[in-house]
């Protein structure tokens, strides 16, 4: 029983990361209809930047905001410089440009910081408490920071004029323009915010998976799975989906482990995590492409 609780807890902690990444993906998808395949590598790059700042001796709670600001600027620049000219380009061009970005971030991180695996210190104090057998302090920290971040974003989009303008720009660009919203800058801001959210995910997950240029590939896959499960057009759904796939991932490994202990037959375990994500992605896409909370898109012909 305790083991099951442990698995659920660590599933929720991973789920927090997936939720952040899924949210970043959805924010870009809702406003521009693009799936950002470079999201994971951008988050990885931000984690490296944070590591560099820590290495230079800055305390974590200075390094993190600095990293977030850096990611925000990078996100805005990417939208303004690279994606702006592609607004009416065919889908293939957009996908290829994202793949190009992925390659650039991946290889730049390798070139600047080398491919050796680096430990990343956890920013949260190590203390013991009643439930410490079930959940570790870093896991709690992951969940708290992620949920706090989500709450902030929710308030930003719900209660500030700027958030309202951004939602308007994403929902209906033409009408938004008519009421005087600068839609182009709203899209760039959205990109910046998505990059910021992604950078927090990267920094939080770095102590768990260790720092190296390949660290985000599998995590991004789960981020995709989360976004799809929740519905790629629904931000709230993406967050829920992230937590769902996080728990699901650990449950599958746990059940596979139980099965092996009971029958001696190895079916599935930690080595098949990516395959599980692939199966989730394909199942959702085939059975319910709009996800659990997404709206069904009807195409007018």
């Amino acid at each position: 029983m305790e083991q099951l609780l442990q698995q659920v807890a660590s599933g929720l902690a991973n789920g927090a990361i997936y939720a952040l990444l899924a949210l970043a993906l959805v924010m870009i998808f809702v406003s521009t209809n693009h799936i950002n395949f470079a999201q994971g590598e951008m988050a990885m790059f931000s984690a490296f930047v944070c590591w560099q700042l820590l290495n230079w001796g800055y305390p974590f709670w200075v390094a993190l905001p600095a990293t977030m600001l850096f990611s925000f600027i990078i996100g805005v620049l990417i939208e303004r410089i690279i994606l702006r000219p592609l607004h009416t380009a065919p889908l293939l061009s957009v996908v290829v440009v994202f793949i190009g970005l992925l390659a650039i971030f991946h290889s730049l991180a390798g070139a600047i910081w080398t491919h050796t695996v680096k430990p990343f210190p956890s920013p949260f104090p190590n203390f013991t408490f009643a439930g410490s057998g079930i959940i570790g302090p870093h896991q709690i920290g992951m969940i708290v920071v992620a949920v706090g971040m989500l709450a902030l974003l929710f308030c930003f989009f719900r209660f500030t004029p700027l958030g309202l303008a951004m939602r308007a720009a994403a929902l209906n660009a033409t009408s938004a323009r008519l009421v005087g919203i600068n839609v182009d800058w709203m899209l760039a801001l959205g990109w910046g915010l998505a990059a910021t959210v992604g950078s927090v995910a990267g920094v939080l997950v770095a102590p768990v998976v260790y720092l190296e240029p390949n660290m985000m590939a599998g995590i991004l896959l789960y981020g995709f799975a989360g976004a799809l499960v929740g519905g790629i057009s629904s931000p709230g759904g993406a967050v829920a989906g992230g937590f769902i796939v996080g728990v699901l991932e650990n449950m599958v490994a746990y059940l596979g482990n139980m099965l092996e202990r009971a029958t001696g037959f190895y079916l599935i375990g930690n080595g098949e995590k990516l395959t599980v994500a692939l199966i989730i992605v394909i199942t959702v896409l085939t059975l319910k492409p709009s996800g659990l909370f997404g709206r069904v898109t009807v195409k007018r012909v």
Partner: peptide
């Protein structure tokens, strides 16, 4: 099944396939 998927969704499904392949080949 990928037929139901258009554009982005197909790219996404095949992206997942590409990432999962090496691990799949190591299946016990």
């Amino acid at each position: 099944p990928a037929l139901r998927l258009e554009g982005h969704y197909l790219a996404l499904a095949t992206f997942a396939l590409a990432i999962a392949v090496p691990q799949f080949l190591k299946y016990r």
